[in-house]
């Protein structure tokens, strides 16, 4: 029995203690122990043990080239745009080499590499410190595909995860974001004030068999795939190129790799 069905049964098992709830229990669990309703992954959903991303930074020369990639994400996920920098929400954004990799401040770095723009986003770490910190499991590492995801319904807004993230990947809704969304995407929810948010590796697109919005918009510069499938394109790139990750020494095992 899978875990979602188990939680359903647990939930109604408790209420079913009262006889009044019996018909309800039957509707959820089915008569004679046979399942009456169940939940599945969509047939076209993309599956992986651990999603990972390889960003070929050599393919970007100026921040303008990153603009459409970031914009694709912002649009897909209803990211607001605030005048006040304190309230900023960022899922994927552009930064400089020494900000992305502050622990690798090589001197006299190749000018070309140093001046390139770098994309940063949630690393969907294999050992995510944010999930360790969260007191309600509102942010958690999804067992099915390793995405570090948020349950916005459960987040109490304590911001412990923001302190725990060594990559500055998390944003907090300091106010209601809805009035500040330039163009509302009606197929995706917004967030409410008082919760933390961050990149979700486009879990909603993967479920429909689509690659993440940034990958799609990158024209091949960003590759997405299963880290544990030796045949995946991600693994192929990792085999063939020297890659680095942000703050590898912290042991969080980031799943976003950079070819520099």
């Amino acid at each position: 029995m899978d875990s979602s069905r188990r939680s359903v049964l647990k939930f109604f098992g408790l209420t079913a203690l009262g006889l009044a709830a019996k018909p309800v229990f039957n509707a959820f669990a089915g008569e004679h122990g046979k399942s009456a309703m169940h939940f599945e992954k969509g047939a076209e959903a993309l599956k992986a043990k651990q999603w990972a991303m390889v960003i070929d930074t050599r393919k970007f020369e100026s921040p303008d080239e990153l603009e459409p990639i970031i914009e694709a994400c912002n649009k897909a996920h209803n990211i607001p745009r605030f005048e006040n920098k304190n309230h900023e929400i960022k899922w994927i954004w552009e930064t400089e080499y020494h900000n992305a990799f502050p622990q690798m401040p090589n001197r006299f770095l190749s000018e070309e590499a140093e001046q390139r723009p770098y994309l940063v986003l949630c690393n969907h770490c294999e050992n995510p410190p944010c999930c360790r910190a969260c007191p309600t499991q509102a942010t958690f590492k999804r067992e099915s595909d390793g995405i570090v995801i948020m349950d916005f319904h459960r987040c109490i807004g304590c911001r412990f995860c923001m302190a725990a993230c060594p990559f500055g990947s998390r944003s907090f809704n300091f106010r209601d974001p809805r009035p500040f969304i330039p163009e509302l995407n009606h197929d995706y929810p917004t967030r409410m004030k008082g919760v933390v948010e961050k990149c979700n590796f486009c879990a909603e697109r993967l479920a429909k068999g689509l690659e993440p919005a940034c990958v799609e918009a990158s024209g091949g510069a960003i590759v997405f795939g299963d880290l544990y499938d030796p045949e995946s394109e991600v693994r192929k790139l990792l085999r063939e190129n020297y890659t680095i990750r942000r703050k590898q020494s912290l042991g969080t095992e980031p799943c976003v790799y950079y070819i520099v």
């Binding site: 939680s7 309703m37 169940h38 099915s144």
Partner: peptide, 22 residues
């Protein structure tokens, strides 16, 4: 409301987005 709660748990926490009714 209970069904929506279960849906939400299934979608957000278990990555299962398809519901098959009886």
């Amino acid at each position: 409301m209970k069904l929506l709660g279960i849906w939400r748990r299934s979608v957000v926490r278990h990555a299962k987005r398809e519901f098959i009714n009886p």
